Amino acid sequence: MSDKQKSKAKAEQAKGKVKETLGRAVGNESMTAEGRAEKAKGDARQAKEKVKDVFKR
């Protein structure tokens, strides 16, 4: 996994987690949903990079 893509995936996951938690704390369902979506995007990016690594070997 390239370091740049790995870092980007981790950052998206963390940002999504924070946004989701904050949305829950203030009762904002829209923010909570956005956080979940960002976290899922980071998870997907990380999974894609792992698949690429498997096929490189």
Rank of each mutant, 00 (worst) to 15 (best):
G27H: 02
G42C: 00
R36Y: 06
K48F: 05
K48N: 12
A37F: 03
G16P: 09
G42T: 00
Q46Y: 13
A14M: 12
A33R: 05
K6N: 09
R24N: 11
L22E: 15
S30H: 12
A40N: 04
K8V: 11
L22N: 15
D3S: 07
T21P: 03
A47K: 08
A44R: 03
K50A: 07
A37E: 14
V18M: 13
K56H: 12
E20D: 10
D53Y: 12
K48W: 05
A33N: 10
K41S: 10
K15S: 15
D53Q: 14
K56L: 05
Q13R: 07
E12W: 02
L22T: 15
T32Y: 12
R24L: 13
Q5C: 07
D53R: 15
T21K: 14
S7E: 13
D43P: 00
D3I: 09
A44M: 08
G23R: 01
K6E: 10
E38P: 03
K19Q: 03
V54Q: 10
E29P: 00
V54D: 10
R45F: 02
K6L: 09
K56W: 02
K52Y: 01
K17A: 11
V54E: 13
M31I: 07
S2M: 05
A40R: 08
F55V: 14
E49H: 07
Q13P: 02
G35P: 00
M31K: 02
E20A: 15
D3K: 08
V18Y: 14
E29C: 01
F55Q: 09
A14V: 06
K17L: 02
D53K: 15
E34K: 04
D43R: 05
Q13L: 00
K56M: 08
E38Q: 10
E38R: 02
K48M: 10
R24E: 14
K19Y: 02
K48Q: 12
M31N: 04
V54P: 03
K41E: 06
E12K: 04
G27M: 06
Q46P: 04
K10I: 07
A11K: 14
A9W: 06
R24S: 12
A47H: 11
G23W: 04
K39V: 01
A25K: 11
V26S: 00
D43Q: 04
R57H: 13
T32D: 09
D43L: 01
Q5T: 14
K50R: 15
D43I: 00
L22D: 15
D3C: 06
R45Y: 09
K41T: 04
E34M: 09
A11F: 10
K6W: 09
K17M: 02
S2Q: 09
T21G: 12
K19T: 02
E20C: 12
V18C: 07
